[in-house]
Design a binder for these strands. Structure first.
Lengths: 287, 287
DNA sequence: ACGGACAAAGAAAATAATTTGCACGAAGGT
DNA sequence: ACCTTCGTGCAAATTATTTTCTTTGTCCGT
């Protein structure tokens, strides 16, 4: 549990003075991590003991414990408050993207719906056949990634980014299969159509998408991914990184559920690679 | 610049006592971030003033400044020392994957070769046609991601994960084109062949791969990605996340170089999406 | 309206942590 | 052999933090 999460929870119950301290944390974070208790108290117009009490309230041992926790969490969590990169220099652009990506992961972690994920893993592991759908570049990448990750575990899976194919496949799917689809925006009408078709045929449907969106509403199970997109049109896509990580989580959980089968399959894949390439078995499972 | 990097640099010049302090930071980090100067000094068998001096040497104002910096950097940077996830519970698996992903980004950032990246962006922006190659699931994802990111900027690009096609395309490419290929392992012999073929025809080649590997050696420019893979065979792939981030960096830099063209293209793509879908223009550029 | 109970917050005192100034001793150069 | 420089610890001074005690204000019941 990190401090900002705790702060969120306690928010309502804070007193005036404590709220002023909280405001400083949120608005002038850089100051807060570097300040001494006296400086922080001064800025918030409260006395040092009040700051100590505030820290205790947030579950910290002492002020210094609080500062450490703050610095740890915030390095990642608070960066989204920062504006666009300072320049177009490679170093700045790189820093900006890495930071945004780490932040996307941080936000994903905080908002993960673990029970939906577990349910998803369960269904995928037991499915007789999996259809993974996604379109539009980003989600189509997710769909094929899903295939890439799951076929290695010995599961039967195909992916498609083609709307017509998706509809036909949805129509062909059977109740023991699973249809899983991704949509960053949640507004992929064709995917909604495929989901609806599948549900009519009692084929279970899983959506990786924004909660409350049309796609989410059309699916049996939704693994929500609700991240604020940056507003630079040139790279709207640290979200992709969060999706890829989510895929990893799901794939890992599936792997644990089908372990014996998976190990055997992986061994065969590896063997094939070694024979096919240069005999060096240090290489990854799939380049 | 983070503390551990500075520590690395100063390492040789440290005195005995200072080295003992450094050891504690490296080996018992958890203790170090939480300790007071007295506790830390005690454990290192030095006096508190020595610790203060040590902090100054590392570029910090004071001990407390040092602690803040330490806590900030280390939250991400030191996690790779941690072992495998505690259990197969969704929460633990999720935490493990998120942490590994963040760490991969951290390591990527630290090891980025910015000049190679800049050169790559420059070449891509000026290319008359771009061929993006990658195979084996992971790298094929990178290749099609590259296409996904760059066509939006108005660049001419195609991607292929098919070895035979790659060879034919390499043979068809012209000197003003660019061939860019990805290989996580650096041991994709077919990609090496494609690169060699292209170089013979004076087509510039760029590799995203492990430095020093066969693929790297076969390319004109290498953007090195050297990350230690985790050893859990079920998910060897936080590296993918680093590659995706690297792609974002490259794509952003390319975008800045072709800005007017890119803006126009993006506008047309967006318009097409709005018309094609439900008229709601809040959606992303490509789902 | 008054008084008691309680919570919030500050003042002052006590404690603890950190830094500074100084002196000593060892290593290395002249 | 002597001087210089550097690293170090000790003790004092400074500063930061916490504890304790007190005040203030608010809510409730009489």
């Amino acid at each position: 549990m990190d401090i900002f999460a705790t702060l969120q929870e306690e928010k309502g119950r804070l007193s005036q003075s404590e709220n002023r301290i909280a405001d400083i944390l949120l608005n002038d974070f850089e100051f807060a991590v570097n300040a001494s208790i006296i400086e922080l108290a001064g800025k918030a117009d409260v006395s040092p003991p009040t700051v100590t009490r505030f820290c205790r309230r947030l579950g910290c041992e002492s002020f210094s414990d609080f500062k450490v926790q703050l610095a740890r969490t915030a390095y990642i969590g608070m960066r989204y408050l920062k504006p666009e990169p300072k320049s177009q220099e490679p170093a700045d652009v790189a820093q900006d993207i890495i930071t945004k990506a780490q932040n996307a992961l941080f936000l994903l972690h905080r908002s993960l719906d673990l029970s939906a994920i577990e349910e998803t893993a369960e269904r995928l592991a037991k499915a007789e056949m999996i259809y993974a759908f996604g379109s539009g570049g980003n989600s189509s990448m997710i769909a094929s990634e899903l295939q890439n990750r799951l076929f290695r575990l010995g599961l039967r899976i195909t992916s498609s980014s083609d709307h017509s194919m998706q509809l036909m496949m949805a129509a062909a799917a059977k109740p023991k299969d699973v249809l899983i689809g991704s949509s960053f925006s949640g507004r992929n009408a064709e995917l909604v159509r495929a989901f609806t078709l599948a549900r009519e045929a009692r084929v279970p449907t899983i959506a990786l998408t924004q909660s409350g969106s049309p796609v989410a509403l059309a699916a049996d199970i939704t693994v929500p991914v609700d991240l604020p997109e940056g507003n630079n049109i040139y790279r709207p896509t640290s979200t992709r990184i969060a999706y890829v990580a989510l895929l990893d989580i799901i794939a890992s959980l599936v792997a644990y559920r089908v372990r014996p089968q998976a190990t055997a399959t992986l061994r065969r894949i590896k063997q094939q690679l070694v024979v096919h390439r240069d005999g060096d078995d240090r290489q990854l499972l799939g380049d």
